[in-house]
Design a protein around this nucleic acid. Sequence first.
RNA 1: GCCCGCGUGGUGGAAUGGUAGACACAGGGGACUUAAAAUCCCUAGGCCUUGUGCCGUGCCGGUUCGAGUCCGGCCGCGGGUACCA
Length: 852
Amino acid sequence: MTRYDPATIEAKWQKAWDDAGLFRAERDPSRPKYYVLEMFPYPSGRIHIGHVRNYTMGDVVARYKRSTGHNVLHPMGFDAFGMPAENAAMANGGHPKDWTYQNIDTMVGQMKPLGLSLDWSRMFATCDPEYYGQQQALFLDFLDKGLVYRKNAVVNWDPVDMTVLANEQVENGRGWRSGAVVERRELTQWFFRISDMADELLEALDGLDDWPAKVKTMQANWIGKSRGLQFSFGVVDAAHGHDRIEVYTTRPDTLMGASFVGISPDHPLAKELERHDPEVAAFCEKARQGGTTEEAIETAEKLGYDTGIRVRHPFDTSWELPVYIANFILMDYGTGAIFGCPAHDQRDFEFATKYDLPIIPTFEPLEGACPEGEAFVPMKSEKVRWIRGFGWDEEASGQDAVNAAIAFCEANGVGQGVTKFRLRDWGLSRQRFWGAPIPVVHCDSCGVVPEKKENLPVELPYDVSFDQPGNPLDRHPTWRNVSCPACGGPALRETDTMDTFVDSSWYFARFTAPEADTPTVAEDVDYWMNVDQYIGGIEHAILHLLYSRFFARAMHLCGHLPAKSKEPFDALFTQGMVTHAIFQTKDANGRPVYHYPEDVDLRDGRGFLKDGTEVEIVPSAKMSKSKNNVVDPVAIIGQYGADTARWFVLSDSPPERDVEWTAAGAEAAHKHLARVWRIAAEVAEASGEATVQGADEQLLREMHKAIRDVTLGVESFGFNAAIAKLYAFTNTLSKSQAGARAKREAAMVLAQLMSPMTPHLAEDVWAMLGGEGLITEARWPEADEAMMVEDSVTLPIQVNGKRRGEITVPKDMDQAEVEKAALAVDNVQRALDGAQPRKVIVVPGRIVNVVV
RNA sequence: GCCCGCGUGGUGGAAUGGUAGACACAGGGGACUUAAAAUCCCUAGGCCUUGUGCCGUGCCGGUUCGAGUCCGGCCGCGGGUACCA
């Protein structure tokens, strides 16, 4: 008998699958289709263990579905545009294209040995002109349908490098290269009208039964539908041509507690004042400092500037409120102006305290008084006592009061109730090179003119350099100067490229016909769509998935997807990250130095470098190149084989949770696979009958239970639970006294149950035991209920909820008998200590609880 | 700041509101071996008065015959926060 030798068998079976062309997907209306997709990777240069986990989960689903008779589509591609390629070009020279395609080559070379059941013939990268040309065609169709427009929006501006920065490139409000204080600057940009679909995107979440509830909640909160009051304050003396300030509030019930009006630094009135008043201009400049992220704006110090302008309260014209310009008010949301009620909003409270503004409560708790030193902000559903309401019950919840306030205001001619969404339109313009060019030209006489479809793709030029900041397209001598598609006169090509989220918003549809000369092909999307199971990281819960949902609708409007694909992902699973400890020491300046895991010796939970220096261990950190804690799966595969890597990433941790990579875990996984192989080899050579009465039946009963539990585990993404069951069943088989025939049957089923996770080992075991054909093509086994019946059951007995004993009774014993048997147990009597049971709860087949 | 998660032995984790710690790692003990590796078997939450005893699922409180699980409030960690992908 030889030994388990993954290097040999993995190559052998991968060749067998290839030769049989098993994973090439072809339309076949006679069979049910199944489309399983993992979020495609960014070609960073090397796969990491998180990729292995993600793709292995998808592969388990794909292989399982194949074994239940489905025609499976399981494709792979690369999300290949984006900043890292440009950063590499800036740092090391070269072209982003070369860097990207080299990385893709490397990563495909690293992925192939994993034995994933992928249809590699469908592979593409989003930076292929054949892909982004079709994306440009989609853009033109969207433009035609009025789904795209231009408007001004703020970006991070680096005043030293004279360039736009990504949020990631802003560190503590400064540009990452120049170190200059970043400012928010307006630029004309392209937008998709996603906000027109806000209500539909919200409503349709209800139909996504196989999406995680948390993702739907996050999307619903992001879309942020709110009912509120829009009204205006009259300006005293109609300063600067503005006689009214329009505000939007979701808490009109607190209007009688208003103490100031705040406007955004980008509000038209603020801009008007800025032009005439250097002091206001200086304030606005300061207020615009820092990055554009919501986080930066919300956590920045709250700054206000009293404009001196006063407005009148709508219900008391003698009551005047000051108008402040405030850095925390966004022009993008509502009207860019608010009123502040410090008594019932913590942010307003802090602002009012800082600028010495009155704090006027409109309601109090039903018992006690408002808290000192902070705003009183109860849940909207909680009832409170109103002291400055206008006309509803003295005791009412915030929610009821909001509705009553809107009705009252409308009846009195103060504004109207409106529904607003937090969701903003999707800005797709990027002032960068490495993205899909936006296919329009700017003509002096015709304005913005779409490129003709026959001229697509508008391809990125190769002769560019990255030796200065900014977009090389802006300074390209010939690429930019074109003739107008409409009038033939001189024109300039648009140099903005598309957000990479556009690339990933339709790749799943393109996989159904990756080489077509239209974005999609009707027969292919009709057959293959929707994605039956989509798998990816929780970090994409909002943006990528929401944009894809929008894109699917937009593509449907343009005839590129059927109506059923408006929601393109039938089921979604979000998996956790793979983490690894960080090993760090400090350099002379106190800055952290990160060490590779292979350079650290672990002893008793402490880590030491070769020279004996102790390192600080930061547990469970997200793997990151810059922290040197990335585990390279290629080394693991080389050492133990792909099946070990696959088995390990699935075992131990529930798929939706983060998993800590440990070298010991991989070693253990390998030992187990070697053991399965050895047991199978023994079974293959065994002969004879059972040595113990009933051993065959017992083994087969356990086998059917394993089929049931593993099938359930695979179907419900309980891969770790399925693997625990497989460990247990392996132990059962190993110790079984059953005869050769029963053992052989059990071992073959074990191989089948393992085949989605460790397909090479499974093939080898299958062949060793004389299985017919490839296990990859074998039908999934079915659990036989009749084989699993047990005739007695063990029930724990509790007294007042504490376990005091157990009884084993026939399965169908009636409750009164069970109760009697339970009370007869010695230890139960001792626990009762003479007391009379008040009640005995018998949960059939589960538990008995005696209540005293 | 705001939204969404997560928190169970030395470690990863299991547990439709029903025996907390399945399965595995590391540890301890043993078998086999000249020895080692490999393999196999046993053991294993904490505490003590060793009783089928007490405590125990981040902390505090609640609902329930019964809570790791449901509810409320804290603490800690992670993801997202619209130009990282």
